[in-house]
């Protein structure tokens, strides 16, 4: 963001000339070649592009899992590109929720314990954690399954647990990496409806990587990556029409 702008209109996320280079010399890989992007609070953005286009790298940087080689990253108006590991962990803990293609739940651990995990690291007391985790599970439609282990749940249900884990901290942003990649069409649409609800009703900003146009169509805005650059960045008319 630039100086003198109205604080209310400044974007939640701002990337300025972000680059990411892996390796050195001949083995050097330029994963990102200068990304500029602004995302406002409450947006639902789909990120698309072929593998190797840099979309995953961009998502890792956006999710505070990785640091950019160059450029500037503003989150909520503060520059965060230079923060250390633990400071990034605190940002993830307090502002982000992750949803992965492979669900990434702790095995042999109940749904409730899985959802409580981020709250444990926030240092929240056990009784309060239980309440919030139950609420989150109820919100994703898994009431009564609190004690089920991942192995006892279907893929769609596991992804719902993962979403409950992502929203239990009341985050500003959910980063979803191919959230429907392992699910059949019916289950995929259920998950997308859930995410859309979280975006429309709770105002959670959603960044979602997908290669399925059907799923991308749920988003308000679709960004295409190609060769480490943003190729296109368009409003999605279909979603806008659906929302009305």
């Amino acid at each position: 963001m630039s100086k003198g702008q109205d604080p209310d209109s400044r974007p939640l996320i701002g990337l300025e000339g972000i680059t990411k280079i892996y390796g050195t010399g001949d083995a050097e890989v330029r994963a990102l070649r200068g990304i500029d992007m602004e995302i406002s609070g409450g947006e639902f953005v789909a990120v698309m592009g072929p593998s190797g286009s840099g979309k995953s790298t961009a998502m890792n940087i956006l999710g505070f899992l990785d640091k950019p080689t160059g450029g500037r990253y503003f989150f909520g108006g503060a520059e965060v590109g230079h923060l250390n590991r633990d400071q990034l962990a605190l940002l993830r803990r307090n502002f982000l929720g992750f949803v992965f293609q492979g669900y990434n739940l702790l095995a042999r651990t109940s749904a409730l314990d899985n959802v409580e995990l981020p709250l444990i690291y926030q240092g929240m007391a056990g009784s309060k954690r239980r309440i919030l985790a139950r609420e989150a599970l109820a919100k994703v439609g898994l009431e009564g399954r609190e004690d089920h282990h991942p192995a006892q749940l279907s893929g769609g249900q596991q992804q719902r647990v993962a979403i409950a884990r992502a929203i239990v901290t009341n985050p500003d942003v959910i980063l979803a990496d191919e959230p429907t990649g392992n699910l059949d069409t019916a289950r995929s649409h259920e998950i997308m409806d859930l995410l859309t609800g979280l975006n429309r009703v709770d105002g959670i900003t959603i960044l979602m990587v997908t290669h399925e146009p059907d799923m991308a169509d749920y988003a308000d805005r679709i960004i295409h990556f190609l060769d480490g650059r943003i190729e296109t960045d368009n409003r999605n008319r279909k979603a806008a029409a659906d929302a009305v």
Binding site: A89, N94, N104, Y121
Partner: peptide
């Protein structure tokens, strides 16, 4: 390793 990854992703610090 994956469990550790999950814990780090949800915001566990190095110390935790």
């Amino acid at each position: 390793t994956r469990e550790i990854g999950i814990r780090l992703a949800v915001g566990a610090t190095e110390r935790q």
